[in-house]
């Protein structure tokens, strides 16, 4: 997912770290990580800017004791947590914005054959919104751990470093987060593949309601 760490922090090359390289490598993953955490495009943009300014300001003090990805995700996680602690934070949805982003990215894919059909895009977009609701309903630590692990691709030990937890704590929280999410999905969603082999889901309550009518 990320650039080779050695390219950035390889041994004696430490002083040669270029902020531009770091920014270009981590801009997309960090923005997406923050967006998954806060679920608001404007805030994700604002926090991403803050994260990279902090990265720049602290670059000279980075000792290379951890991977640079771990260090940047620590800054990102702490910035998100600081944001959550602010009195102005209210859980907000920005479905329209997220949907717009979803489609705007589709249009940037060069290979036309890879462009999803409008129908598949809509289904996926609705599913994403639904799943985001469920992830947001998880307790904060569970949400952070499952996003870092299952979506950002970090190993348990790396997550322990990012969050300053013990390895066992990460394992326990990841297991509980998966268990909780699995239970929520099992209770609320019916997943299936349609005739075009597109993964779809129905909300169980909606489906039941519809069938009752």
């Amino acid at each position: 997912m990320l650039i080779c760490e050695k390219e950035l922090i390889g041994g004696d090359c430490m002083p040669d770290i270029q902020f531009n390289d770091i920014f270009n490598t981590y801009q997309k993953p960090i923005y997406n990580y923050v967006l998954r955490m806060v679920r608001n495009n404007d805030i994700a943009e604002e926090l991403s800017q803050e994260i990279f300014i902090k990265t720049y300001n602290n670059l000279s003090s980075f000792q290379g004791n951890s991977k640079i990805s771990t260090w940047i995700y620590q800054i990102a996680t702490n910035t998100c947590l600081d944001y959550f602690r602010t009195s102005g934070y209210k859980k907000s949805k920005s479905t329209d914005q997220l949907d717009q982003d979803f489609f705007s990215e589709e249009t940037q894919i060069d290979d036309v054959s890879k462009i999803l059909s409008l129908e598949e895009g809509l289904i996926k977009s609705e599913m994403a919104e639904c799943i985001r609701d469920y992830i947001e309903s998880l307790p904060g630590d569970y949400r952070t751990v499952i996003i870092l692990h299952d979506l950002e691709g970090f190993k348990n030990r790396e997550i322990a470093n990012i969050l300053d937890f013990s390895l066992d704590t990460v394992k326990i929280r990841l297991h509980r987060a998966r268990k909780k999410l699995q239970s929520i999905l099992a209770s609320n969603c019916d997943f299936y593949r349609d005739k075009n082999d597109v993964l779809c889901c129905d909300r169980k309550s909606c489906k039941d309601d519809c069938e009752d009518q």
Partner: peptide, 23 residues
Amino acid sequence: KCSRILRYVLRDVNPPLSIKDIV
């Protein structure tokens, strides 16, 4: 399945260009 569904529906989006300009 739970992990695969997460990865399937929550795919990465491109960050707005303004982040780079402002940073």
